[in-house]
Design a protein around this nucleic acid. Structure first.
Length: 278
DNA sequence: GCGACAG
DNA sequence: ATCTTGTCGC
């Protein structure tokens, strides 16, 4: 059981070398394996009333679901929050957080802060970490899991934005990127079928032994026609979540769209919230 | 020197 | 990320 590490928060004023050194500390403090208490199977993108009772089949052939654990899961499903940013003008960032529970939005918050530094591949957390931490402070509920629009362990120093914020807040987190920052898929990722995934391993650009499993290319949706295809999502552990679970969670949270619902809604809310600023 | 690079 | 026209498909 670790603790929050506000001392490791991303400071935009650091030199590049210091930023990279801090990321190495983050990677050392991160846990890239399952270490949480919520029930992964209770995480869904659809509302309980709307989804098929596939559970019925299971309980009929076994013991009726009467354990206190099941009751607790049914009455108090995990809270998953999606985080995403949008930009105002070119000197302020708006970070939006959408918290969901059992497929329902239970809270939406946002924060606006000035941008301190430009975007540099590998140092995203130092540009957007401030706004994100500010937005998370506005949250009245505390999430069981954070989903970020960006990498987690799939990062040069194994400390992408999902890992950085996850460690600072000590909350289980997962990175969901729309393109690959580094690492190497072990197989072709073109035209995968929905539900398929391909391991992403560390290459020479990553500060990890070659071959280390960094995450997965996850195909949440795919077209039927072979003409055109949808690119996969690049999912990696942020903190306290292993690679397989990270992929499974994203798969479970994706419904009609490619992006998992909490991130998709945070994305649109980040845009919508621009309207109530200034 | 060149390439490659989340959002 | 943001700026934008055009195009494919249900």
């Amino acid at each position: 059981m670790s603790d929050p590490r506000p001392d490791l928060a991303p400071e935009p004023g650091l030199s590049r070398d210091d930023m990279e050194a801090l990321q190495s500390e983050i990677a050392d403090a991160a846990v890239f394996a399952d270490d949480f208490s919520f029930d992964v199977d209770a995480v869904t993108s659809s509302r309980r009333d709307d989804r098929q009772s596939t559970q019925t089949t299971l309980s009929e052939s076994s013991t009726p679901a009467t354990s206190s654990d099941d009751d607790q899961t049914l009455e108090n499903p995990p809270i998953v929050a999606g985080v995403d940013q949008s930009f105002l003008g070119d000197d302020r960032a708006l970070s939006a957080v959408v918290a969901m529970q059992a497929g329902e939005v239970i809270e939406r918050v946002h924060a606006v802060t000035p941008l301190e530094i430009p975007y540099v591949p590998g140092l995203l957390a130092f540009r957007e970490g401030g706004p994100i931490l500010a937005a998370l402070e506005e949250l009245s509920i505390d999430p069981d899991l954070l989903l970020f629009d960006g990498s987690g362990r799939i990062h040069f120093r194994q400390a992408g934005i999902a890992t950085h914020i996850g460690v600072v807040r000590d909350v289980p987190s997962v990175g969901v990127a729309k393109s690959l920052l580094c690492g190497e898929p072990i197989a072709d990722t073109e035209g995968l079928a929905a539900g398929e995934r391909v391991p992403i391993e560390a290459d020479s650009s990553v500060d990890a032994s070659a071959g280390t499993l960094l995450g997965y290319a996850v195909q949440t949706r795919q077209y039927d026609s072979p003409d055109r295809h949808i690119n996969p999502l690049y999912v990696s552990p942020g903190h306290r979540v292993g690679p397989e679970t990270a992929a499974a969670l994203v798969q479970a949270l994706a419904s009609t769209y490619k992006l998992p619902e909490p991130v998709r809604l945070a994305d649109s809310y980040a845009e919508e919230a621009k309207g109530l600023v200034d």
